[in-house]
């Protein structure tokens, strides 16, 4: 049986002679303009579960293992040691403080090294911090899990009076990771904003470090697209975390993060 234009037909047409019926078949086939027609379809999905029926192919392991082993060795590199587990929290959390301080500190260092004006403060989004960091050894693998994306640090120039949408966002989110800036949140509204100890000035232009995802309007921060300038400093957020931890270890120190009330809920 074959189908042509959705009309299934059989190859036997008994009312005609053998020869004639063959010709009829030919006429039908010719009407499809193809040499083949779909007769039947069968579908199946195989799932590679924990107890997969299919054995592991050893030949492919020969290809994977050099990468796997190198990666395992790299990922197990201990970058630093933390005296406690770092988790996200609102309005201020240990993980957010570490992340924002690392970005601010590393961005300042990078700007100093490249003769650029350094950022006044930093903000990030909690959504970009994917997993907590453990107490004890923090490995490179932990940092890749914390920050799998290639998000880059950018510096935006924004006037103080134009930062209102940012503070509205911070109020609605009940706090986000920040560094170099302090504020209170009362009834979801931000008040008493101080940048490096000085009250926010409406007419001053601030240099603000963040990730390019937010700067490009991610997480409904489209207002950031109207920043006066948007400058990439050629530094990924992940590399900032990695270098921050490496510097701590190189100085013979342990990572110690303390909540300092930078965002306080009243």
């Amino acid at each position: 049986m074959y189908t042509c234009s959705n009309h299934p037909m059989k190859f036997t047409i008994n009312s005609f002679s053998k020869q004639i019926s063959l010709f009829i078949i030919l006429l039908l086939l010719a009407s499809c303009h193809t040499q083949y027609a779909i007769e039947k379809k069968e579908t199946h999905q195989y799932t590679f579960s924990d107890s997969a029926q299919s054995p592991v192919d050893s030949s492919i392991w020969k290809m994977i293992s050099p990468y796997h082993n190198e990666l395992s060795a790299k990922m197990s590199e201990v970058l630093a040691e933390s005296d406690q587990a770092l988790v996200k929290d609102n309005p201020e959390g240990l993980l957010g403080d570490f992340a924002a301080d690392a970005v601010q500190h590393q961005a300042v260092k990078k700007c100093e090294a490249t003769n650029m004006a350094k950022p006044d403060f930093t903000f990030l989004n909690n959504g970009s911090l994917r997993v907590p960091l453990p107490k004890g050894d923090i490995t490179l693998g932990n940092i890749f899990e914390l920050m799998p994306f290639e998000n880059a640090i950018v510096i935006l120039e924004i006037k103080g009076k134009d930062l209102d949408p940012l503070f509205k966002y911070i109020g609605e989110k009940n706090g986000i990771p920040v560094s170099g800036i302090r504020m209170n949140i009362k009834n979801k509204a931000v008040e008493s904003v101080f940048v490096n100890g000085v009250a926010l000035e409406a007419e001053r232009t601030y240099r603000v470090a963040t990730n390019d995802y937010l700067a490009n309007g991610g997480d409904n921060m489209s207002f950031l697209k109207s920043a006066i300038t948007n400058t990439a400093i050629n530094y990924t957020v992940r590399d900032a975390f990695i270098n921050e931890l490496k510097e701590i270890k190189a100085a013979g120190k342990t990572l110690k993060v303390n909540l300092d009330g930078r965002i306080t809920k009243l």
């Binding site: 049986m1 074959y2 959705n6 030919l26 086939l29 010719a30 040499q35 083949y36 027609a37 779909i38 007769e39 039947k40 379809k41 069968e42 579908t43 199946h44 999905q45 195989y46 799932t47 590679f48």
Partner: peptide, 29 residues
Amino acid sequence: NKEVLVAQTGWAGIRLGRIDFYVEKKSSL
């Protein structure tokens, strides 16, 4: 009004999809 199949196997190589087509051969046309 001809049938079209749409398939997708989730992500991350958790699955492999399979569709077998049986086509009528008319190679001596």
